[in-house]
Design a protein around this nucleic acid. Sequence first.
DNA 1: GCGACAG
DNA 2: ATCTTGTCGC
Length: 253
Amino acid sequence: AGTSGMSETQPEILQRWESEQAELKGQMVDSDTEDWQRAEDFAGLQRIGGVDLSYVKGDDVNACASLVVLTYPDLEVVYEDCQMVSLNAPYVAGFLAFRETPFLVEAVQRLQRNDPELMPQVLLVDGNGVLHHRGFGVACHLGVLTNLPCIGVAKNLLQVDGLQNDELHKEQIKELQKGGDTFPLMGHSGKVLGVALKSCDKSSKPIYISTGHRISLQSALRLIGSCCKYRVPEPIRQRKLRNQDATKKKIKL
DNA sequence: GCGACAG
DNA sequence: ATCTTGTCGC
């Protein structure tokens, strides 16, 4: 037992993070909780948000946190917020939420203060939801903290519960014919953790969708499918474009 | 030593 | 995540 109350060792930090994830996981809801989620045409859905951080190569401290809100179904940007922040947690696979979530929550709170009428009814998050080592990725984490419906959208497969980016997986990808085609991601546990989605006709590489909070996988998939002009869903793509632009401008000052 | 590794 | 050049296609 160490006597150092000041500095935590790396294993101690990961252990603390794990227990925090377990605690928050108890509050996660992985099914539809809003009326619009059940409507065939998402009637009542008016605003979709996208959040993420943009990093600077060679800089472990500075990043830009951004939140973008688009109208639905027109997908026009009605709100954007970019804020430079100071990172205070490293990137560890499986613990992405501890690096990014604090700043994303702040962005949502800023919106609540300044333009509450623009609060999105669902949030798209870079990264995974329940498709995660302990079934609680960044999309679940942010969902519980903000109580907003959240969807995890990852561009790479997180190999968990027996899921692998192996030859079989690559074969399944090749069988995807056109935009909207999917195949389920079932782990060894037998549970469907998410779906691989060919998000547009042109992309050969799928995106990986999983439930974050207060939405079902079926609704999440339908929604993502309806806002993909390109491979990356429009709310996240717009967020990325604006975020990178802001990061470059601000880093030069 | 080798493979894995959301962002 | 981020860096880079050209190349191919519409």
